[in-house]
Amino acid sequence: MAFDRLILKIVLDLLVLACVGVPLLVIHLVAEPYHRGYFANDLSLMLPYKPQTISEGLLAGVGFAINVVTIIIVEIVRNKQGRGLGDKFLFGNLISGWIWETYTSIGVFTFGAACQQLTVNSAKYVIGRLRPHFFDICQPVPNASPTLNALGYIQDFTCAGPNADVARLKDMRLSFPSAHSSFAMYSAVFFIFYIQVKGKWRGSKLLRHGIQFAMLIGAWYVGLSRVVDHMHHWSDVAVGFAVGALYGVIVFIFVLKPKKYGAPASWETGPPEMLPRPVLSR
């Protein structure tokens, strides 16, 4: 029965991930963002187009790599210290408890990443906020539509820019919120919480916190680079940070549930354990 429950758990985990991942894929491939208009004198949309410093692939690769490698190392060390969970049977074979814990932690991290990306990307398509380089890419030409272009707010226009291909015309409407900032902060918060709760060792206490700070600064830099690259307004990045941090906290505390790992090891060596009185009296 334990074997059957373990297989069922893996299958259900994959189904839940698919339920989150498939809508995210559909949004990217099929959905069309809301066509928001603009004011001709909006200076926040007149910044020049610049190539982005950090691509989506690079950010996703680094974010996943850091957390996955950290989880594997921590679980191996915990297992060697005798603080891991017991072994489990899978497909008729006995597997070490650290392997199952690694699978669980990576799965939870992936689930949270998919959820926060679905949240921010769905908001992008619903809001349709124009990026700061809108005028540079689109070079809009207003059409003769007195009803849609009333009071200086232009909704009916044609993009005449030489670089206004289909992909860029779609991307220029996906400014709010920043998915880069959201994923970067989510990865950082999950990493910080994970090594805080499970990455215990004796030695320099500041080393662990220094690594946590470096991860936080990395996420901070990702958000700043999106503003510097004219890909987002500062408010897009601020909301992205907030969504990512919120998901990082919720996923770690309520999905991974660190309480099940028991009390953390102390930094200090405690006093020697005293033998029970009946033993001392012999």
Rank of each mutant, 00 (worst) to 15 (best):
L43Y: 06
W98A: 04
L207S: 10
L148R: 11
Y261M: 08
G270P: 07
Q116K: 09
F109P: 02
T102V: 04
I72S: 04
G84E: 02
N41C: 08
M231E: 14
A160H: 07
F241Y: 14
Y103P: 05
R5S: 12
E75N: 14
G203T: 11
P272C: 13
L59E: 00
D171A: 09
V77A: 01
L206V: 10
T147S: 08
G161N: 02
P146R: 06
R5L: 10
P23T: 02
C115V: 13
L24D: 02
M46V: 10
K124R: 11
L6A: 12
L17V: 06
N67E: 10
A144G: 05
I192S: 04
I72L: 11
W234Q: 05
G21C: 09
L85S: 06
G57Q: 12
G210H: 04
A263M: 07
S105G: 07
A184H: 01
K50Y: 11
E101S: 11
F183C: 05
N163Y: 15
W98S: 03
V239Y: 01
A160M: 12
N143I: 10
V126T: 15
A144Y: 04
L207E: 09
L85R: 07
V108S: 01
V69S: 14
G57F: 12
L224Y: 13
K170S: 11
W234F: 03
M215C: 08
I127A: 15
R208H: 01
A179C: 09
T119Q: 12
A150W: 08
D42I: 09
I99Y: 01
N67H: 06
H232T: 12
G107S: 07
P278I: 05
S55H: 07
W98F: 13
W220K: 07
P132Y: 03
R168Y: 02
I10L: 15
A40C: 08
M172A: 15
A113V: 09
I127W: 00
R173C: 12
V77T: 09
K205C: 06
A160F: 04
F64S: 11
W220E: 03
L256A: 05
C159T: 12
K80A: 09
P272N: 15
N67C: 09
V279Q: 06
F191N: 04
L216W: 03
I106C: 04
L43M: 13
I72A: 10
G270D: 10
R78Q: 07
V120D: 03
R173W: 14
D171F: 01
F64H: 10
T110R: 08
M172P: 02
K260N: 12
V22L: 11
E268H: 11
C159K: 05
P140W: 00
A184T: 08
V22A: 11
I106W: 00
Y186K: 01
R173M: 14
A214Y: 10
P272A: 15
D171W: 01
W201K: 10
S105H: 11
N79I: 09
P162K: 03
